[in-house]
Each structure stands twice: as C-alpha cells, then as structure tokens.
Design a protein around this nucleic acid. Structure first.
Length: 433
RNA sequence: GGCGAGUUACCCAAGUGGCCAAAGGGAUCUGACUGUAAAUCAGACUGCUUCGCAUUCGGGGGUUCGAAUCCCUCACUCGCCA
C-alpha cells in the first residue's frame, strides 16, 4: 500500500528542461540507447516503460530501490509504468558474475513474487491516467511450449551474440562456467520486453547497467521481430568511494522489508554515509531539488561535523521506505541510545521504546553477557563474543565489560532491561523476564 | 569420447608427508584518533565446557606412528583434441 502522503510530496525538479536532463544530473544514466532520441521521447507525450524485479529473495533491497525511484521519476513526468515481477525469470536466475545460482522451489518463488509485488506497488502511484500496472512474466512464459519457444523466439537469437554478453562471457572465462539454464536467461528477458511491447506498447526498459546485456536482448528482439526501435536505460551500479560494496550493513544486505532490516538499522545505515558519497546518494535516493542538494553540498564542505547532509538523507530515505512514524521512532531511539553517559537517567518509557527498535532478547536476571551477545545477534558465536570482550569492545549500559564471565546481574535498569553494545554503535536490548 | 590442468577458510591466493588451525592480500570486527565520517596505526578473524580439546583444506575410501600434502574413487570446473 503506498503512503499517499509520502507519494504526494514527491516531485521532479521543475528547473530542469525535462526528465531526461534530470535523470542525467542525478547520475541515473550510465548507458542507454540513442540519448537524443530518448530525450525527445521522454519530453513528449506519455510513453509506457517497464522495469523488472526477480524474486531471488523475500524482499527487495537498496539496489532495487534505485530502480523504483527511476520508475517513480518517470511516472511523475507523466509516463506510464509497468512493474514486472519475474515469476518465471526468478525460477531461472540471471547469471551472476561469480557463480551459478541455486534454484529455488516453485512454491518459494511464487511466495516471493507476492512480497515483491506488494513492495513495488508501494513506491508508485496507482492513481490517475498513468497508474502503475503490475505484470508477471510467468503469465506469458508458462503457457509457452518448448517447441514454440525455440521456433518463435529462439530463431531470432544468434549464439555468437549471446556469448558476447558480459554476464555470459565473464562466466565462461571463470572457473564456475555457466549452465544452459542461466545462459538462456537473456532470451526470457528479451521475450518479456517483446510481450510488453505487443500488449502495452511499452517502448522503454530501465534496469541496472549490469543488466545491460539483458536490456539490449529485448531491444534487439523487438527490432528483429517487429522492425521497431525501442529504448533502454542502464543505471550505474551505486558504489562506495572507498571501494567497498554499497548496500551492506554488518555484512548483510539492507532490505526494504522492516522485518529483515529494522527501520532503526535502515536509518543508521544512511546516517553513516561517507562525506565523499553523501551528495551522490542524495541525488539518487531523494526527490530533493537541485538547489537544496547544492546547499547541502556546501555544508558538507564547510561544516562536515554537523552531518547535515547525512541527516537529511537518512530522514528522507527512511521515511520514504518505512513512513514518517517509524522514522521518528528510529531517530528518537538513536538519540536516547547515543546520548552520553548515564542511561538510568533516561525516561523509562523512552528507553524501552528505543530498545524495541533494536535487535533484542529476553533473559533471566543472571544471564551471562557472552550468551546475550549471541542471542541478540551482536556476535555470531560464543568465541566471537569472548573475543569482543577481550578486545574491550563490549559495553553493558555504557560500562565496559571486562570479563567474559560477567553477567547482567546488578546491571538491570529500572523497568527490567539492559542495553548491550558491541563497538561504538552496534546496540541490542535485553529484557529481563 | 580422449588427453591435460584444477577444486584450500567470506573473496583472491600460498602451501606438495610432521615445525599447518594452515603464509600473504582484500573484506570484516575491535581498539586508538574522530564527526555514530574518511584516512592512518595496532590487534583480532573455525568452534567449544577456551591456557586445553574438537573439527577443517571439493565428497567418500585407503597408505602411514603422522596427510591439505601420497594412492584409489566419485562429483564439479577449465583448456586442448575429437
């Protein structure tokens, strides 16, 4: 369910001549079909475009959010979005550069399709002439026989061309090799575009630039099958300036589903953005107009320690994904927990609410700290928990724990809880039963 | 189908009978410094009932006092030939 209030606040920046120019400025365009043609097309009357999401997990993640925002910007410019969730492509799996995917069961994929559809629909308006339409490629691939597939679609594909796609050649040159299954993926995606062109008049597909081979698979197929030239935009992979992977927190992907990544963790993820990255993140992940982003850019330069840009970014993206209420709760929790010193001076209800935002566990009043570290997920194993304590990285209610035999006895705050911390900013709550 | 090469911890990659829980780099974690930043420096990085024990080097079996290292076999990958 989209939050109408959040969607209503979004707008493209009117100071740009058109949506194309804005997409370019925000850094959304890495590769595309003919840029001049696209600019004209997007500046004209409504066109239909699509972007696909494969159910390879029970939730979308931040990489997918980039695509959703591109879709939303195009929708705000008056164009008509088709949100595709890959019920069939998700059964195959697109070739990753490193290794073959493990196939998920049909039941699992079907379940995930439902989750992703719900998420996709949250970010796009279902109102008006250009309301979003959700489609599932299983609807047109499931009825297709192998013979029809090979005769009607396969004939348009040249193996030489297919082998040259980055995704395929990377795997051919690796130890992992590639199965026929994943090799065929590009054909399925090409078929999707052709189907959507025929059924909906779709003439633009957007996607990550790592999907470029699959995007052009569709434009090539439509040119051959229909003699029509359609378009594709490949958005750049979002990267961190220090070379690490974007979108990871504590080694895990940052998910849009609050059950998988809490709003608190989500907010913290954005708040911790590097100075070097924060401006480009604002461009990609928010609807703030150019002047505002430029103002924040100058603040990063003049008073970086205030982290105004990071705060704005964190608030904007968290409220977009989780709503204003959850965002405020996450901020209040952080203020309580990152406040200096004495936790017992905090208001009991505030503290309890903050702990509810964190990973937490229930324990007896004499539970060992090492076990709580594991139970709350702050440490992956008892050995790791002991190590963390030995290195002086564990705190109970802001007091350093100096023995791996410590328990929470005597440290329980009024109200029956305790705050466990690993390192400077990884927190968890303990509720005493 | 034939021949050759290969499969080491999250990733890359050393190691070719004991000194190997396994070099080095990256990633990650902790500490110092800080702005809940970056860079830098230091430490850690299989598990556990943690000063010791257990389990790892594609799977299974064998040789040996002793194997990641030798042999057999299965699986997978790459290359060349057909």
């Amino acid at each position: 369910m989209p939050d109408p209030a959040v969607l209503a606040q979004q707008a493209n920046d009117p100071t740009f001549p058109g949506i194309w120019e804005e997409l370019v400025w925000r850094g959304h365009v890495h590769v595309s079909t003919d840029a001049e043609e696209l600019r004209h097309l997007l500046a004209g009357g409504p066109i239909t475009y699509y972007c696909g999401f494969d159910p390879t997990a029970p939730s979308l993640h931040l990489g997918n959010l980039v695509q959703l925002l591109v879709m939303r910007r195009l929708q705000l410019a008056g164009h008509r979005p088709l949100g595709l969730v890959g019920g069939s492509t998700g059964l195959i799996g697109d070739p990753r550069p490193t290794a073959e995917r493990t196939l998920n069961t049909k039941d699992t994929v079907e379940e995930w399709v439902g989750y992703l559809q719900a998420q996709v629909s949250r970010f796009l308006s279902a109102e008006g002439d250009n309301a979003v339409t959700l489609v599932n490629n299983l609807d047109w691939t499931a009825p297709l026989s192998a013979i029809d597939f090979l005769r009607d679609i396969g004939k348009y594909y040249r193996v030489g061309t297919m082998l040259k796609k980055d995704a395929v050649s990377a795997r051919l040159n690796s130890d992992a090799g590639i199965s026929y299954t994943e090799f065929s993926y590009q054909i399925l995606q090409g078929m999707d575009y052709l189907e959507l062109y025929r059924a909906h008049g779709c003439v633009l597909q957007t996607g990550g630039s790592d999907q470029w081979g699959n995007l052009t698979s569709g434009t090539d197929l439509i040119r051959r099958a229909e003699g029509v030239s359609v378009h594709a935009i490949g958005t750049p992979l979002v990267t961190n300036s220090d070379g690490t992977k974007f979108g990871k927190s504590e080694g895990n992907a940052v998910w849009l589903d609050p059950a998988l990544t809490s709003p608190y963790a989500f907010y913290q993820f954005w708040l911790n953005t590097d100075d070097a990255d924060v401006i480009s993140r604002l461009k990609v992940f928010t609807f703030l107009p150019r002047v505002e982003i430029e103002r924040l850019e100058s603040l990063v330069a003049s008073e970086p320690f205030k982290r105004e840009a990071q705060r704005t970014l964190a608030w904007d993206v968290t409220s977009l994904v989780h709503g204003v209420e959850a965002t405020d709760a996450a901020i209040h929790a952080a203020q309580a927990l990152f406040g200096q010193g004495d936790l017992s001076s905090l208001d009991q209800a505030t503290l309890e609410a903050a702990l509810r935002e964190l990973p937490n566990t229930t324990a007896s009043s004499s539970a060992a700290v090492v076990h709580l570290l594991v139970d709350t997920g702050l440490s992956a194993s008892l050995s790791e928990a002991r190590r963390a304590i030995a290195q002086g990285g564990v705190y109970l209610n802001n007091h350093k724990v100096d023995s791996d035999e410590a328990t929470i006895a005597g440290a329980v705050l009024p109200g029956g809880f305790a705050v466990l911390r690993r390192g400077k900013k990884t927190l968890a709550g303990v509720f005493v039963a």
